[in-house]
Amino acid sequence: MRRFLESDFLYDFLRAPVAIVSFCVVSILVLSAIFAQFIAPTNPFDPASLELMNGFTPPLEPNMYTGEVFLLGTDDQGRDLFSAILYGLRISLFVGLMAVSLAMTMGVILGLIAGYVGGWLDNLIMRLADIQMTFPSILIAMLIFGVARGLLPPELRYEMAITVLIISIGLSEWVPFARTVRGSTMVEKEKEYIAAAQLIGLKKWQIMIRHILPNVLGPVLVIATITFALAIIAEATLSFLGVGAPRTEPSLGTLIRVGQDFLFSGEWWILLFPALTLLALALAVNLLGDWLRDTLNPRLK
């Protein structure tokens, strides 16, 4: 049965060009982020490698002082943009991944509890979810970010920026996971094998993890993919607004923020290339998520 499902899944995948292309784009971006230090010509975080003379070099043109050529040009500080994008991509993906993991863990646990235990706990969790859903998640993330900054002593604000960013985005996205898991759990709970598991004396948490969790993983995977796209965009947005990744650890959003400043003076490449990378990433993950949703669970539509 499982085998059959998987082969059908593969069958659908190989017949969906959009899914294949998106998958390839995501793979290439992820791999180049992982192996950034081997691919990138320079380390953009190493101040020693920066040559201010190289500043504002257009793509593929030799610098007028040093004669060096950069694939995608350089920014104001002479930082190789190609390298900066690779490292920025790494931060964007890292934040996105961690934020989704956080949201997923939290949502799945709360959803399982709400669905399986029920009662006032269920009520409390779901009302909380309702209230959070009235507010757009980006706003929640900003608010959590602001509060966290307020709670941190000023000297830690920059050091902890990435962690705070992950927590803010993660906490703002748990609701869809919890709702889906709760729904599936309530359906699963009524089935006979759960009653059987209760009869042989398994504990509640054992039943939840061993029997119910595997059955709700399909929709969770779909939501995780879609949330991943949302998290990447949220991260980029916060960083662009200056309340995310700092300039010392620039993500794609930070790079775009920097690039915007040079738009008026004609250095378009500082903005364009990070923007295109972000767009490709967000679009590919979104398309992949859409396809997964349609294939794995048409009802989620």
Partner: peptide, 22 residues
Amino acid sequence: SLIGVSLPTFLIGVLLIWLFAV
């Protein structure tokens, strides 16, 4: 519209500025 959904709001703004203002 599919691209529109994936395009972050701030990027739309920056690109519009670039095209229509700059």
